[in-house]
Design a protein around this nucleic acid. Sequence first.
DNA 1: GGTCCAATGTGGACACTGCCAACATCGATT
DNA 2: AATCGATGTTGGCAGTGTCCACATTGGACC
Lengths: 201, 201
Amino acid sequence: MRKPPYHHGNLRAVLLQTAMRLIREVGPAGFTLREVARRANVSHNAPYRHFRNKDQLLAAVATEGFRELTAAMRTAAESQPSAWERLRRSGLAYISFAVRRPEHFTVMFDTPLNPRDDPVCAKAGEEAFGTLLSFIAYCQRQRELPPGDPLPLALVAWSLVHGIGKLANANRFPFHSKTELMKFSEKALDGALGGMRRKPG
Amino acid sequence: MRKPPYHHGNLRAVLLQTAMRLIREVGPAGFTLREVARRANVSHNAPYRHFRNKDQLLAAVATEGFRELTAAMRTAAESQPSAWERLRRSGLAYISFAVRRPEHFTVMFDTPLNPRDDPVCAKAGEEAFGTLLSFIAYCQRQRELPPGDPLPLALVAWSLVHGIGKLANANRFPFHSKTELMKFSEKALDGALGGMRRKPG
DNA sequence: GGTCCAATGTGGACACTGCCAACATCGATT
DNA sequence: AATCGATGTTGGCAGTGTCCACATTGGACC
């Protein structure tokens, strides 16, 4: 029975893990730096050796979230036949992520991002949007969306799925199951984005 | 020079006003019950005679916000000739409100609503959505949108404007002025909702 | 192999918060 | 005029984020 070493070894990673679990359990409101430290069996000040402050730890959590979101969108889209189907699936994956990890999603988007504070997080966020943008551009190359600058189209698509995710999490929708929500989301994407297919941009 | 009376008179209203101003200044994160009391020249415990706790005060702030939002949408729509134009204007008013009062908007939507906790707030929120719904239904009566249940259409429109508002507030858009944002929003509404015009629902 | 040092841990302190309890004041009802 | 409930006040408690001084250590350097 040896006593635990004074130095942890990979505390930073453990803190991040613990923080993500805690956010999931208690939400951003109940989230506490000291509780993270407690669960990591470490003094209340240890986290400060790895994160400048509470916000920086949350930014790291958000960064991880953006990476997972990007991965989820890519996975959902891959092996889909048509460009259009890839776009649809990635949009649905976005919504699915939002409602499956509501607290994480909140941390990622409900802090006005100052890229100066955490460029890594900003980069991860831009990459998530970038994958959506790439699917839009792919649709254009396949003539499934009108040609031109893909950016505005991507912003519209993003706004739509983001709005659905946020409103669903805020309990603003009349749906009683995730299945219902996803069915609605499909129709929403088809209706809104589909309406812009093959028309002059 | 008379000393201030022991009993304030209309402290509840003053607290609400003060809270709204404070939210505007410091945002939901820095918002503090004690600071509200301080600014109202009242002891740190006085607010508890009028609001059960901090969340209830915030709920009251949110309620007021929903009323303002509803009014803004109605005002923007009125005296517009076509049903379609009314829908457009009310949607733009929603976005405009979101970016003009970002903190207030956050308080309104970024707390998972439990209608049990504050039915008045829930009602005010539903009414805001109800006005959007009514404009959709009006479009349908004027044959500017396909007939059928207006609810899904309204939810799509809501998601879109909500998403735009949220992403704009989170600094996620590449626009450099509110004008640019509103121009984009117009195109977004026309493209997404316009695409669903006059097609089988 | 011994010495230093920067990285990483600890405990203590401070100001601040939300909320609770006990007490003070006062206007309306009797 | 007495009273009583509504509405104020002061004081206290536990918990928080962050700063400071101090402890421990593994590895670089001679």
